[in-house]
């Protein structure tokens, strides 16, 4: 099939960007979306043009590096799928596809479709961990953990930190990302010990980075490649309220 691409090109963070049109010819349905872009880039390089810059690494939906807004939807709109796992069989011959970077104040554009997501790292640095140093850990079976708690914790821990939740949100809120980490750790006995401190610090870091507020529209959940549930935001709000009242 043949497609028309409208791709956001922007030389650097400080320059003006614009959409540029490209033709993607002889696209095979079994190709992934990024492989389709690879082929377009090969053509651009052969013609002496600068290839379209986009982030990707593992290409199996787990590293969280890929980050494209496709036809207005972060990761392209297939449930539970990151851009790298989106395949061209979902498109039709003759389609026009718009490709943009994540857009959020806290994720400044570096070049073309690549953005700076280090704000997420700084939120984790503020408290997204269990404060244990290497060595001296008790036996792994010393504290039994109910299977249900472990499963729920794992649902939250599955977050790949891609930032689609922020890109999809009209307020560019990072609540789903932060709630996933707060819940992952807070649901386990090992993480409960410092849960108040954690949630207060992480929320403060989130606000400091310039992410917007949450109005619970659920667009984050809809685009999340790991289908992290909106319920975790409720859980975090509860923890945050409790911690604030305790004043810790």
């Amino acid at each position: 099939m043949n497609l028309t691409l409208k791709v956001w090109r922007q030389k650097s963070g400080s320059s003006r960007g614009q959409f540029v049109e490209y033709q993607a010819k002889d696209v095979i349905p079994d190709m992934s979306f990024l492989e389709m872009l690879d082929v377009v880039n090969e053509g651009l390089i052969s013609g002496g043009e600068d290839p379209i810059v986009f982030d990707s690494d593992c290409r199996e939906g787990i590293c969280g590096m890929c980050s494209l807004v496709i036809n207005g939807i972060a990761h392209g709109g297939h449930r539970g799928t990151a851009t790298c796992q989106l395949h061209m069989r979902h498109f039709n011959d003759g389609d026009t596809i718009t490709i943009e970077p994540w857009r959020a104040k806290a994720f400044p554009i570096i070049k073309d479709l690549v953005v700076d997501r280090s704000a997420f790292d700084r939120i984790i640095q503020a408290g997204g961990f269990v404060s244990v140093s290497t060595g001296g850990a008790p036996d792994g079976n010393a504290i039994p953990i109910p299977k249900e708690a472990q499963e729920l914790s794992m649902d939250a821990a599955a977050c790949i930190g891609c930032g689609a939740c922020v890109a999809a949100c009209k307020n560019a809120s990072a609540m789903l990302f932060v709630a996933a980490k707060v819940s992952h750790l807070g649901l386990l006995p090992q993480g409960k010990v410092e849960k108040d401190r954690r949630v207060l610090r992480m929320v403060a870091a989130m606000d400091h980075e310039g992410f917007g507020g949450c109005t619970v529209t659920g667009s984050c959940e809809a685009v999340c490649p790991k289908e992290i549930s909106l319920d975790f935001i409720g859980l975090m709000n509860r923890e945050y309220l409790g911690a604030s009242l305790k004043g810790s």
Binding site: F129, V132, G135, A137, G140, I143, K147, S153, G191
Partner: peptide, 22 residues
């Protein structure tokens, strides 16, 4: 054996049986 203990202490949600053990 130390690795598993360390990771559990960090909050790695390893699969568990219904009795709560790994």
């Amino acid at each position: 054996v130390n690795i598993i203990d360390q990771c559990v202490a960090q909050g790695v949600p390893f699969a568990r049986e219904y009795g709560g053990l790994l």
